[in-house]
């Protein structure tokens, strides 16, 4: 029986494709991290960690199951929450091996600019701190990181319908919080 060759559809199926994937998402990932940490060296470390994690878990990305963006944000969230759980000692061990040795003065300036640019987003994130975890995580990805609801649902491993319900509930809660920007609670964003 003759078979036509099937090209792997995954953007992560080949080393070269992975490089293109990295270049496609580098800017968005540094911004994602910069919204969550104020330290340029930590931004560099975590960005490196996110892409290392993406490389090593590339098999978990299924092109048919959603966008690569949604998947990568899921990976990034896992990296960041693992980083929050890590003890100081472990964090120092990671620092020794990852990205800050790659940074020079220009890079630091550039990352600092990104961190400054994300200051409003960090303020918004802290305003959302009072929400239930599931609602907060979703609102973060949709409003702050500008993912679609479907991508955010994929990043969090929940159904799109569940995501819509949570998003609605989160916005309703935030409407009653003084000082929350209108953008956070506007439906349809």
């Amino acid at each position: 029986m003759r078979l036509k060759q099937v090209e792997p559809a995954s953007p992560l199926a080949r080393a070269q494709a992975f490089e293109a994937f990295y270049l496609r998402h580098f800017d968005a990932m540094t911004r994602f991290v910069a919204r969550r940490t104020g330290d340029p060296q930590a931004v560099a470390d975590l960005t490196a960690e996110v892409f290392l994690a993406a490389l090593h878990s590339r098999h978990t990305y299924r092109p048919g199951r959603g966008s690569e963006t949604g998947w990568l944000y899921g990976v990034a969230r896992n990296v960041l929450s693992a980083q929050r759980r890590r003890s100081e000692r472990e964090a120092r061990a990671v620092e020794r091996v990852v990205a800050r040795r790659l940074l020079d003065g220009d890079d630091l300036a550039d990352l600092t600019d990104r961190i400054d640019a994300e200051e409003p987003a960090r303020r918004a994130l802290s305003a959302m701190a009072g929400l239930a975890e599931g609602e907060r995580a979703l609102l973060e990805l949709v409003v702050i990181d500008q993912l679609t609801v479907a991508e955010a649902a994929q990043a969090l491993g929940i159904r799109v319908g569940t995501a819509r319900v949570r998003l609605h509930r989160a916005r309703r809660t935030l409407r009653n919080v003084p000082g929350v920007s209108a953008a956070l609670v506007t439906e349809g964003l």
Binding site: P8, A13, R14, A15, F18, E19, Y22, L23, F26, A44, T47, A48, F51, L52, L55, H56, A99, L102, L103, D104, D106, D107, D110, L111
Partner: peptide, 23 residues
């Protein structure tokens, strides 16, 4: 100077060379 983006790309390229790219 080589940017952080490019240096990290180099690091990732080296790492990618150590993993299996089976389909």
């Amino acid at each position: 100077t080589v940017s952080f983006r490019d240096k990290l790309l180099e690091e990732l390229r080296a790492e990618a060379a150590t993993v299996s790219w089976e389909p």
